[in-house]
Design a protein around this nucleic acid. Structure first.
Lengths: 244, 244
DNA sequence: ACTTATCGAGCGAGCGCTCGCTCGGAAATT
DNA sequence: AATTTCCGAGCGAGCGCTCGCTCGATAAGT
């Protein structure tokens, strides 16, 4: 399937898989012992949290609503987290960890060539944010109304992504394939182009823009802006996903 | 002063001026009769609302907090709006109206040339969002957790700006100064570059990026992406502000 | 000039309600 | 029988919002 070829992580980044990782990370606070039960319920809780929060905001979502939507009771919820902010923190942490992990592991073939590497970063970031769309929207929208400690994590996530981009830009500028004024600032400008796909998803859906079209558009736009010789080289990144 | 030259609206878009316009628009709901008193108090209320909401979210800001911060009482607040959502709506409406008004009134000299027009749009949008920074942040962050009717207004504002950009792109593409795949999608990609300045202001402040640097960077980035012959033409837009 | 009547602006305790969170016991599993 | 899981009524706190009230300024009456 072409869909599978483009999203080799369809399984690896399913809600179930992500919740299993969250459980690992918070084993001492989740009071339910049986792992399969815990993962299943966590998945129901987090699915409901993402759905309701992305509609009306995390703060405006009450635990009673959440209990009803997830099929657990008030008390049941509290066997999975100690308090409401911690639920937020669980989701946020998982998004940050996964994003950093994925973006820091480019295929070898791609890492050698700055243009290919940048195009891979663009495509990968957008596809990952598509696979984990509700998670990314949540992290983006809710991060600011968070206690300082956790907000710091979110901020670092943003800076982290940018520094990955900046690193590639630096290499490309050094080898002469990119023409860039200031590397850091240019990386900062590329980031919102990647985020727009999930932040304003409704808009693109209404426009009828597919993810492939969007990736191609961003790749071409950024490529042209950086003076990369062949913007068409963007296409080189796609087959690389097939081997995942 | 160079600052005044770059922001001829420093007075026209002050909190006081904006609140005076809000008062006009909502005369029948504000029960305070004396205009100077009403404007002054509206300004205190809205300043406090923007400050608290941008820190912790509108929903998380209670009217008791707001009363304390604005120097009015609970009852006093309710002589200026009928209910809490309406306070939100007042602010949102003012941002949308002002943005549309300003962006739809380019200087004549600029409107003739697509490149100059686009660069003027970029610079103007960024400078307006700087002058009204708390307002823009508020509109961006709070719009989604709003009743359908008002959310629609926010959405239309977004679409409105994009269609202004798209119109200029279309002209430029027709006259051959821009090389653009799909006009609508390209306009959609330019928008987040304008928004990033106020959405992630903390980041740019930390980087030490000035607004002039940012405008130049976006202008150059977009210019190059569109294949506009002289990206340096961006500078032509700035003196035009002096005449305001 | 002095008194009195009127009024609009502002106050804040208190209403009904929902919030996040707890805990003793029922139900299910082993 | 023992242990684990899950339930949901109930707690105090805080919410948006109301309303009877005070008070200083202005207007009217003398």
């Amino acid at each position: 399937m072409s869909l599978a070829r483009h999203r080799p992580w369809a399984g690896a980044y399913s809600t179930e898989a992500l919740c299993a990782r969250i459980l690992e990370r918070h084993r001492q606070v989740v009071r339910v012992q049986k792992t399969p039960v815990a993962v299943a319920n966590l998945a129901r809780i987090i699915t409901a949290t993402l759905r309701l929060s992305n509609k009306q905001g995390f703060h405006a979502t009450s635990l009673r609503e959440l209990a009803k939507a997830s099929g657990l009771s008030m008390g049941g919820l509290y066997t999975y987290f100690a308090n409401k902010p911690m639920l937020l923190s669980m989701i946020l942490g998982e998004v940050m960890a996964t994003a950093s992990e994925v973006l820091r592991a480019p295929p070898e073939a791609v890492a050698m060539d700055a243009v290919a590497h940048l195009n891979w970063l663009i495509a990968t970031h957008i596809r990952l944010s598509e696979a984990m769309q509700p998670w990314f929207v949540f992290a983006f929208m809710e991060a600011k109304s968070f206690p300082p400690a956790e907000r710091q994590i979110a901020l670092e996530g943003e800076v982290d992504t940018e520094s990955i981009i900046a690193e590639v830009l630096k290499q490309g500028a050094a080898s002469g394939v990119f023409v860039i004024g200031e590397v850091g600032l240019t990386a900062a400008l590329i980031k919102p182009l990647l985020q727009d796909w999930y932040v304003k998803r409704a808009k693109y859906r209404k426009r009828g823009t597919t993810i492939e079209t969007y990736i191609d558009a961003v790749t071409a736009f950024v490529g042209a802006a950086l003076g990369a010789g062949t913007a068409a080289a963007g296409r080189a990144s796609r087959p690389a996903f097939g081997q995942g």
